[in-house]
């Protein structure tokens, strides 16, 4: 069985647990996903399945893509991603995967593209303290010194500087599955998930959280 799914973030709300606690949850549209291609060690050098999510008009596909979908015998898909599978997995093109691969209480990792913040300064991006706003400090949101003098005469690699923040792939690990609604392919997950509502996300069984 496949260990992951593609989907969309729908939005956040709150949920009462059985003990009456009110916890924050995120709703995910998880699947249905269709297997588009099976990659094998013999032919491709590794074992994986390529999975598609969301429909797309055929005339919006480039010709190579159109033929790719035709070869698999599936409708054109909007998003294509690969998931690793074990040797001898029986998934084949055209198979559908739904949110019922997860169940209540499972732990999952969710990846998505975080909201872009643009080019940001060092206070917002790296939580630097900055300087005093008043008392004539004349040093407000700047990073301060970034290195020493002629020794070492360079700035250390990886020094935290201003730059693009967000709009990159982020994974949140070990989130708890609160509820699964297989009829609607809904996945209800405790806590927050990267990206904006409507953003494409990838849900996998957690690498850490077997518990």
């Amino acid at each position: 069985m496949l260990k992951g799914l593609l989907g969309q973030k729908l939005g956040m709300t709150r949920h009462f647990t059985e003990d009456g606690l009110w916890i924050p949850v995120t709703l995910l549209q998880a699947g249905p996903c269709t297997v588009v291609q099976r990659k094998t060690a013999d032919r491709d050098g590794y074992e994986a399945v390529q999975v598609g999510y969301g429909d797309k008009k055929e005339n919006r596909c480039t010709k190579p893509l159109r033929e790719h979908f035709k070869a698999a015998g599936v409708e054109p898909k909007r998003v294509l991603r690969e998931f690793k599978v074990e040797n001898g997995s029986e998934l084949k093109p055209g198979d559908e995967i739904c949110s019922d691969i997860f169940k209540k209480g499972d732990r999952v990792d969710v990846s998505g593209v975080s909201k872009g913040r643009g080019f940001t300064g060092v206070m917002k991006r790296h939580n630097f303290a900055g300087g005093s706003r008043t008392h004539g400090s004349r040093f407000h949101r700047r990073p301060g010194s970034v290195g020493a003098s002629s020794t070492p005469a360079e700035i250390v690699k990886g020094k935290k500087m201003p730059g693009q923040m967000g709009n990159c792939r982020v994974t949140v690990q070990n989130l708890e599955v609160i509820d699964v609604v297989p009829e609607k392919n809904l996945l209800v997950i405790r806590g927050a998930v990267p990206g904006a509502n409507g953003g494409v996300i990838m849900v996998k069984h957690s690498v850490k959280g077997a518990r």
């Binding site: 729908l10 939005g11 949920h15 709703l27 549209q29 609607k184």
Partner: peptide
């Protein structure tokens, strides 16, 4: 009603 409100 959207999916989030419906579920909640």
């Amino acid at each position: 009603m959207n999916m989030v409100e419906e579920y909640a």
